[in-house]
Every structure is written in structure tokens, then in C-alpha cells.
Amino acid sequence: MRHYAHRTALLYGALFVCALYFLSPLYVMLVASFKTLAEVRGSSIISLPEVWTIQPWIKAWSEACSGLECNGIRPYFIATFEIAIPAVAFSVLLGALNGYVMAKWRSRSADLIFTLLLVGSFVPLQLYLIPLAITLRELNIYGTTAGLILIHTVYGIPLTTMLFRNFYVALPDELVRAAIMDGAGFFKIFFSVILPLSPAIAIVAVILVFSGIYNDFLFALTFGETGKRPIMAAVQNIVASSYGIKEYNVNIAAVMISALPTLLLFLVAGRFFVRGLTQGALKG
């Protein structure tokens, strides 16, 4: 027993040190974002602010300059959601439909297409840039929100297809066969039988695709609309802005704000995320 207690203490000690190590940057950023600029420069990075101020957060939100415009990150924040919400919706829905076809309406080509999709998703992003640029230009949506929605929808499909396919493969085939016997058609089966079984995996897909789109920098920078760039490109712009003095506290606040949505998503939906990943077919 004693031996066991020692080991537990050691284990928790080690875990505590690790947690401290990983949380320390967050702590440094958090305290810095509540300090005045003078204090950021003058005090130690781990000391708490002498004077608490939320001014950096306000400035980052609505006044910080990106290039010549000084509206904070708010417009970019909104622009990101304008892209992410439709793109997530489309790619999750299409991925579910794809997965359903591949898992339950197996044709000889299904495996080939699935392999191609997987291979496609391992190709480095940079390779896509020029073909994408040409495609968007031909479609007349270069540098627009619609263009980015299209890119992210398409780019999300391999991942969502894989998730849904693997989930649906575990569902019993007899379910689909029973629905066929009942006279349900392809879409009726999908919307009435299959999709209602999918919330767990859909949450996983939403989290993965959303954070992918939200954290995207390359496409945002390359194809984003000037003045309406998605958040990651905008934050970089603010932080790297070379005019005037570096307002570290404002930059840090901007970064913190931009990190909040994905953080919140994980906190709120993390439980479902784990459940969705570990849950196979539904019993009964």
C-alpha cells in the first residue's frame, strides 16, 4: 500500500509539472494582455499586473490597425464566421452523403474513389495554390468570400467522408436493407434512417473541419478579400504591422481573442468529441 501511495504521488507530481509547463505560456500571455504597455515593457513576464486594464482587449477588438485600416480584428472575426459556417455545413453534409454511399451502396469504384480521396488529402497544401488560383479566377470568385467557402468545402470533404464512412461501415447493413424493403429510396434512407444516427460523428466532423478552417492561414492569406481576410491572416497582419511602436499587450489580446472560438468549441463539445471518436455502431 505504501509503495502504491508513493507511486501515485510521483505520478501526480510529474503530471503537475507537465501541466505547469504547458500552461505557462498561456499564463504569460494572459497577464500581459491585462497590463499597460509600459508595464509589459518594464515588469517581469510572470508578475501579475499592478494596474489591471482591459484596454488592450478593447483596442485589439475594435481599434488595432491592420495595414491602413484601424478597425481591430472584429471585421475579420466576423468574416471568418461568414466563411467557416457555410463551409463547415457543406463539407459535413456532403461528407456524410459520401460516407453513406461508400459504406452502404458499395460499388466496385467506391474503394478506389475513397483511396483517391485519402491520397488527395495528404498532398501538401502549397501544391494546390496555383491550380486553385486559376480555378477561382475562371469561376470569377477570386479573392471573395465565396471563393474561400468553396475551397474549404472541397478541402474538408476527404476528412469528413473518411469520418462518416468509417462510422457508417459499422452500422448493420440490414438497417439499409430493411429500409429498402420498406420502399424507402436513396435519400429517404439517408435522411430518415442514417442521418439521425449520426450526431456523434457529425460533432467530431464539425470540430475538426471548423478548427481547420478557423486556423487556416495559407488560403486565408492567398485568397482572402482585402479588408475581409479571415482571422489568422488578419492577426498576423496586426502583429507584424511595422508602423509605430509594437503594442505587445494589444497583439497578445488579439491573439487571445482569435484563439477563443476553437478553445470554447473544444470545451463545450469535447465530451461529444471523445464519445463520437470511440463510439462504433449504435447498439439496439
Binding site: A178, M181, D182, G183, P196, L197
Partner: peptide, 20 residues
């Protein structure tokens, strides 16, 4: 088509729709 044959089937696993 199966649904037009005027037959009905009871499956081994029953295959009841879990969400309904």
C-alpha cells in the same frame, strides 16, 4: 424492386430503426 414485390421481411438482427 423489393418494395414492389408484395413481400415483407423479418431480419435476423430485426434491423429496427434505432432512432424511431
Amino acid at each position: 424492386d423489393p418494395s414492389d414485390r408484395n413481400v415483407a421481411m423479418v431480419f435476423q438482427s430485426y434491423a429496427l430503426y434505432p432512432t424511431m
